[in-house]
Each structure stands twice: as structure tokens, then as C-alpha cells.
Design a protein around this nucleic acid. Structure first.
Lengths: 246, 246
DNA sequence: TCCAATTTTGACCGACCGGTCATCTAAAGC
DNA sequence: GCTTTAGATGACCGGTCGGTCAAAATTGGA
């Protein structure tokens, strides 16, 4: 059982917090979540007009940016889906760009306090955390895949490739998100080295390599539209090593 | 000396073939190309109106799609840069989408017969080919970086993340490009296993993992806007291993 | 109850999007 | 010389883009 509990797919998929479910799974085996992931009726932000307008815009945009791309999604389309007038949109967000920034922050928070926090649980043995992270990524893509019919990949990776050459501030913001994630890996590796389960290495470089690998397999899985790629290639993340430069 | 000769940056950067230059370098050290990469005057397709219109459109589009993104680049903009009327554009390409398809084919060809062929030279020891590939990726990004001021990353990776959820045919095409690249890795690994420089492994899975890692470090390098990330993390590609499932 | 601030509305803006088309030009084949 | 055809031209299409705005509706505090 890797994904232990309180793992809320709906939140990750830009949805208002539903009742929590307990998800169980065997490591690197298909999950059998209790959620009916084909039922989208309850998870669209627009369907729950009780949440405030700004949040509705934010979550709708997040889902659309994630499933498509920044340029491909128009403000009008976001407003329609969020059941908000365009004028209202510009009351809460000065521009599309600033919306994207807010989306990144929002997703980064959900990420950090969601399944990333769970995967990098200090109570878990360091190396198990790596498997956990792969597992979570896989499960997360399967869930999204079942809902949208296609793998959305990693929002940060998507935006990074799309926006890095167009907006340096957004690039830096995405880079900061990646750095935070890298640090989770680094702390884990440091601990593994300390307790002897791994030989001494350049933990920062290796952590960065692991993050790159994670993004890489998600990219490839998305291109194949097959989340199983993550399961298949993921465990090899533990073989990555960069020695200390002397 | 990894990048040995006939390595034509200008072609890779969507340019008409100039006179070839001999480039020399030490493995995993900064290259010192003989090209003045800050001089863009001679490499813009539009500046050489002697090449035929279709090619001019193709190469201009390739450069723009690579440096920005599919959605961000408009047909009018491509036509202006290629010094072509919009009507002429639609004489050669039925749609923007088909242009992108042609761009992918064109880049894939240049790639396969360009520095990929050079990196995976059968005369090189298998493991050296991997270093060569990393080196080529690094040099290629540095060159593009020097010209554009920012890292464009991998055209295929960029398009894959942008288009996979929007166009299944384009996704499949990009997937085919990745599969071809994966096969280069696989053949290399098979050879390495055969000659004993690597222990037996699942070469297909490991090859896929290596490709994913390559795309991953390019993604991260682009997000940091620093090609050196490729040099720093790249060599760890050789540590990736996926065992044969028994 | 009244006021002031917040939020919502929907019409509107100019620019640009991908794409069409009738017309013109120029070269090739005979 | 004449015809056929590939290529080039630039005006034009409906639609959508991101963004604006004045006015109306709603809210909450005094």
C-alpha cells in the first residue's frame, strides 16, 4: 500500500475538496480507487457555484491549462466553463498571464501539501519514498486519463516547455517549483546516504537528475498516451547516480 | 574530440546548408566552435531568397516553432519572416497543422542523418556513443542559445507536450520519432551487452528510460535557461538500468 | 435605512487568428 | 505564338483573441 490515505485525486484535478476516500494499492500495481473516475459531474468547478468566483476561475483555468495548454485556452472559454462573465474575470485577475501565475502557485501548493508531501513522508524509508513518488505520479495520470481520455502530463513540465522562451518571470517561477521538488529528492537522498542504504554521492545533482527523469518519463508517457510507461520506467529512478566531484 | 566533423549547426537550426566547418571539442567540455554564433545575418532562411519558397516556409516555421511554440506562432508571422505571401503559403501547405507535420518530418530527417547519426556511429564504442549524444545535445543547445538568447529545448519534446492532448495524429507522429531515437539507444545497449561492457539487461526498457532522461534534462535545462545542466546531469544517463523481467 | 465598497453584467474595442479566393505573372511545352 | 500550368499576389472572410468599461446589482457595516 503506497498511496496510503487522504490522497485526494479530486483536489489534484482542480476540484473542490470532496469527501476524502481511502485509497489502497500494492506498490507499482494498478490502483483500484474507490472513486468512480469516469463520473465528472461532481468535480467540475462550474458545477459547484457555491465556491467563490475567484476560486472557480482559478480551478477551471488550472484544469484547462493542464489538459490543453496556455495558448490553446482562451479567457472566454475559461469564463464560460466557470460560469463567470469576462468582466468579472478581469475584476479578479489583471491579465491571462497573472492567472497563469496564480494557477502555478495554486497547483504547486496542492502538489506540495498533497501527494508530494505524502510520498516524501519522513516516516517512510528513503528509498521507498522514491517508489511512492513514481506510484503517485502514475496513479495521478491514470486518474486524469480516465477522466479526460488522454494523459495531461505534468502541468509544470507542460508550462515550462511552452512558456520558458516567452516569459522569463514565469520560467523562473516554474524553475522555483522544480527546485522545491528537487529538494524533496535531495533530502531523501541525504537521508539514504546517512543511514547507509546508499553510498555517498552528489545528492543535489542526483536529486536533480531524478526530477529530470521523472519529468522525462511523464513526457514520454504523454506522447504515448499511456500512463503505464511511468510504472514501467519509473523504478529505474533509483539507479540514477551522480558521484561527488572531487 | 566528440563532435568530430561535418557537424552543421546551421542546418540543425533550420538554415540553408552553409559551408561546412570542422568543429572540435573535448568530451564534456565546452565547445569552441569556429562559427560566430552571434551572427545571425547569414542563417535566416528569409535572407537567402534563392532557396525555393516551400523550403523557405518550412525552415522558417521550424525555427519559429522550435524557439517559441506551435500556437504562439501565426501563419502571417511565418510568411513575413519567410518573405512569402499568405496565398503562397496555402499553395504549398493545406493548413498550419500540415505545416507542423512537415516540420516534424524535416527536423526528424535532419536529426537522424545529422548529429544523431554521428553520435550513434557504429565505429564508436557503445558507451562512448552515449556520451557523444549528451555532448551533441549540449552543444546544440548552446549554439541555439547563443543565437536566440534562450534555450529552445527539443522541438519534439516541446511539440509533444503542447500537442499530444490536442492532435492524436501529431502525437503519434512525434511518438514515432521518439521510437526511432529509442531504437538508436537500444541498438547501442544491445551491442554493449554483447561485447561485455554492460551486464545483461532489458535493453529496450533501458533505452526508453535513457531517452526519457535525455528529454527530462533538456526540459530542466530549458526551465533554468542553462544548457550546462545537460553537461552536468547528462553523463548519469549511463547509470540508468532496467533489469530483464523474469 | 442609507451609504460605500465589492462584485457582476454584457456590450464593446482593435488586433489578430487560420483560411479563402479571384486575379495576375511567368515560365514551360508545343 | 499560343496555351497550359505552377506560382505569387493581396484583399477579404468570419471568428476569436486579450482586454476595457460604464452601469447595474449585491453586499455588509453604521
Amino acid at each position: 500500500m503506497l498511496i496510503k490515505n487522504d490522497f485526494d485525486v479530486r483536489r489534484l484535478l482542480a476540484c473542490p475538496p470532496p469527501t476524502l476516500r481511502i485509497l489502497t494499492s500494492a506498490p507499482n500495481l494498478n490502483f483500484h480507487p474507490t472513486l468512480d473516475l469516469t463520473d465528472r459531474s461532481s468535480i467540475m468547478p462550474a458545477m459547484t457555484p457555491d465556491i467563490d468566483t475567484r476560486t472557480r476561475i482559478l480551478l477551471t483555468a488550472r484544469e484547462m491549462f493542464h489538459g490543453r495548454s496556455y495558448s490553446d485556452v482562451g479567457i472566454q472559454e475559461i469564463c464560460d466553463a466557470a460560469k463567470v462573465q469576462k468582466g468579472s474575470f478581469y475584476h479578479f485577475f489583471p491579465s491571462k498571464r497573472e492567472l497563469a501565475m496564480a494557477v502555478i502557485d495554486n497547483m504547486a501548493d496542492d502538489w506540495a501539501y498533497g501527494f508530494v508531501a505524502e510520498a516524501f513522508d519522513p516516516d517512510l524509508p528513503p528509498l521507498v519514498r522514491l517508489d511512492y513518488m513514481i506510484d503517485a505520479a502514475y496513479y495521478w495520470q491514470v486518474a486524469a486519463s480516465n477522466m479526460e481520455g488522454r494523459m495531461p502530463g505534468c502541468l509544470f513540465g507542460n508550462l515550462a516547455l511552452e512558456m520558458s522562451t516567452r516569459d522569463d518571470v514565469m520560467r523562473a517561477k516554474l524553475n522555483a517549483v522544480f527546485n522545491k521538488a528537487m529538494n524533496k529528492f535531495r533530502v531523501t537522498l541525504d537521508e539514504a546516504v546517512k543511514n547507509g542504504s546508499l553510498a555517498a554521492m552528489d545528492t543535489e545533482a542526483t536529486a536533480t537528475a531524478m526530477l529530470a527523469y521523472l519529468e522525462g518519463i511523464i513526457l514520454l508517457a504523454k506522447t504515448r498516451n499511456d500512463p503505464k510507461v511511468i510504472l514501467h520506467l519509473g523504478p529505474a529512478i533509483k539507479t540514477l547516480r551522480i558521484e561527488l566531484s572531487h
